[in-house]
Simulated assay, not measured.
Amino acid sequence: MSDTISPYRSVLYVPASRTRAMDKARTLPVDAIIFDLEDAVAPNEKEDARATLVATLAEGGFGARRQIVRINALDTEWGADDITAIAPARPQAILVPKVNSAADVERLAAMLDAHEALADTRIWAMMETPLGILNAATIATAPRMVGFVLGTNDLAKDLGARTRDAMIHALQHSLLAARAHGLICVDGVYNAFRDVDGLAAECIQGRDFGFDGKTLIHPGQIATANDIFAPSPDELELAQRQIAAFEEAEARGEGVAVVDGKIVENLHIVTARATLAKARAIAELEAA
């Protein structure tokens, strides 16, 4: 399943230093996993975490779940060594934090080019700095780019923002840049992992903005994200009726149809078919 059609409803951060947590991730109904070498790993554990992660990825067992490794920022003492250490595991993708410009991604891409084992490794960018948000459109065009992950905690810190509403422009700007260049875009984390209602509200908002899914910090958040970011039965039924009505209209030589008293044009059919394709991709992932 390619990145462009894989579901990313739930994207779980897992510390690369915790073998038990990574083992458990093999059994979780999560769409994608971010194996974290950055914030979740203390400085004195970085080296051991790399070795643990390489062994875990080599062992496999993650099925169709997409696998992303978050390295340390390239301007730290650990970033370059992270790349060298994990190269033998041939990770599907690398998530680079603190991206400020396309040059940061270009630098990483050049480092990946130096490792034959990383020839197929894609790049995701953490969008978590004010400068990175402002440069989102050019970052999206950098080599090997496949997706954005919103780092709302770091962004809030840098902005001095106290609420999610204060970051709405940054969220939408990042999403706009991602969509303009065909990238996946995943919303930031919800910190109060026991607050199911709060998580649901934020997932609904993110879904309605257009995000592909939600980054998560606890397995208990997976079911909520999976449910909200998946097409509902009503949405699937409507999509099928729109397609059927439009095809009937075309057969009559007409360019529009009417469903539930609303005009249905070709643009609605594009959305309807994308909705059905997403449902099929989710079913394929869950069956794997």
Rank of each mutant, 00 (worst) to 15 (best):
T27P: 04
M126L: 15
F211S: 03
E128F: 05
I263E: 07
I228W: 01
S2Q: 11
D195M: 14
I217F: 06
R9W: 05
D31P: 00
I269C: 00
R18S: 11
A89G: 09
A192L: 14
H268N: 15
E248D: 13
R26T: 13
L95E: 01
Q242N: 11
A200Y: 05
E237T: 15
D23V: 11
A142Q: 01
G210P: 07
I5L: 11
A166D: 10
S174D: 06
E235V: 02
D212Q: 10
L176C: 10
Y190E: 03
G132W: 04
E128V: 06
T129H: 08
R70P: 06
A249Y: 12
A244E: 09
D197R: 08
A283E: 10
T224F: 03
L199W: 09
I33R: 01
T4Q: 13
K24S: 04
T141E: 11
T56A: 14
R252F: 13
E235P: 05
E254K: 11
A55R: 14
L238E: 04
V69N: 02
A21C: 08
R18W: 07
I184E: 04
G160Q: 04
P130R: 13
D31A: 00
Q221N: 02
M126F: 10
D36T: 10
A114R: 09
I123N: 04
L74R: 14
L131G: 09
P231R: 02
R144Q: 03
R90C: 15
G63N: 13
D23A: 14
N135I: 01
A58V: 13
A166Q: 13
R107K: 11
E38N: 04
G182P: 02
V189I: 14
E59Q: 12
S174P: 07
I217Y: 01
A64D: 15
P233W: 01
G63I: 12
K214V: 00
G210Y: 04
H169Q: 09
I139K: 01
M126N: 13
T141P: 03
E116D: 11
D39L: 09
R90Y: 08
A279G: 03
K24G: 00
S6K: 12
Q67M: 15
F246D: 01
L155G: 02
E116F: 06
Q240F: 02
L238V: 03
A249D: 02
V69W: 01
Y8S: 15
L183P: 05
V69E: 05
P15M: 12
D82W: 03
A89I: 06
G79V: 11
S2K: 09
A103I: 14
H181R: 15
V14M: 11
L95S: 02
R241I: 05
A16F: 07
A87Y: 03
A156D: 04
V264S: 03
R50E: 06
V256I: 14
A73L: 12
A245C: 12
G151T: 00
I217W: 05
L159C: 14
G132Y: 00
A249W: 11
I71F: 12
I83G: 00
V105F: 05
D3V: 15
S101A: 15
A245T: 07
A279W: 06
E202G: 04
I222H: 00
R20P: 02
I243P: 05
I34W: 02
R9A: 02
A51S: 08
H115P: 04
S232T: 07
M167K: 07
A257H: 06
A201V: 12
I228Y: 00
V96D: 00
E250D: 12
